[in-house]
Design a protein around this nucleic acid. Structure first.
Length: 212
DNA sequence: AACAAGATTAACT
DNA sequence: GTTAATCTTGTTA
């Protein structure tokens, strides 16, 4: 169908409203392209990380190292890092630059490239679109995203990018709560920066929107 | 130079 | 419910 028309402007990511942007990422397409083929997922779970003032952020207190450097760029690039030595976690960098805002992608509804994903996940049978896109480490594996994707610009086609779908989840479908796995962050661990749409609900809406 | 911890997951008991 | 897998990073426990 369309090509560049559906890709958000860079301005979309250059905002101070990281929490709002996290909410708006729900329903957008995440697309990865490789020699194996193209993989597409609809974003169904995100978490906002508010940079220097957020105890849960890697850039808390203004920490600026080789790893966190990409977070200080203008919004719209990918921040991928290795967690527990095993999992590559994908974030969308946000903000006007010099502010290390990031949004962790925690869940997708897997839409296209299921055969490629099955291979990446080392499964013998078909993958489960309702489950295999859930979890920040699992979805990157399915989509073939690793540390080499760090810094990629997500507002134009390449190896990894985002596209608008026109799909929006209404308020009742989006669960909001505290972030996962950040108990060490004290009071910041309680902040309602996590946005989640149940994949079963997402599947219904995605069909309604004619994206299947 | 060495080490403890981590925005996790799958496979156990 | 518990634990192993696995390795980069930031700190020096």
């Amino acid at each position: 169908m369309k090509s560049a028309d559906n890709i958000p402007e860079r301005d979309f990511f250059i905002t101070e409203d990281v929490v709002g942007l996290s909410r708006r990422l729900l329903g957008m397409k995440l697309i990865s392209a490789s020699e194996k083929g193209r993989c597409v997922g609809i974003i169904t779970e995100t978490e906002a990380y508010l940079g220097e003032t957020d105890r849960a952020s890697h850039a808390y207190g203004g920490r600026r190292t080789a790893r966190t450097e990409v977070m200080y760029r203008e919004g719209g690039v990918a921040y991928v890092y290795l967690c527990y030595g095993i999992h590559s976690l994908l974030n969308v960098v946000a903000g006007p630059g010099n502010k290390p805002y990031a949004i962790l992608i925690r869940g997708l509804y897997l839409l296209q490239g299921l055969d490629v994903m099955a291979e990446k996940l080392q499964r013998k049978k078909e993958i489960d679109v309702l489950k295999d896109g859930i979890g920040p480490g699992k979805l990157t594996k399915a989509m073939g995203i690793d540390l080499s994707h760090n810094g990629i610009e997500l507002f134009r086609p390449g190896r990894l990018w985002l596209e608008e779908t026109g799909l929006t989840f209404n308020g009742g479908m989006v669960k909001i709560g505290p972030r996962v796995g950040v108990e060490y962050a004290g009071e910041d661990a309680l902040l309602p920066y996590r946005f989640l749409v149940d994949n079963k609900t997402a599947a219904i809406e995605i069909k309604k929107a004619g994206l299947v």
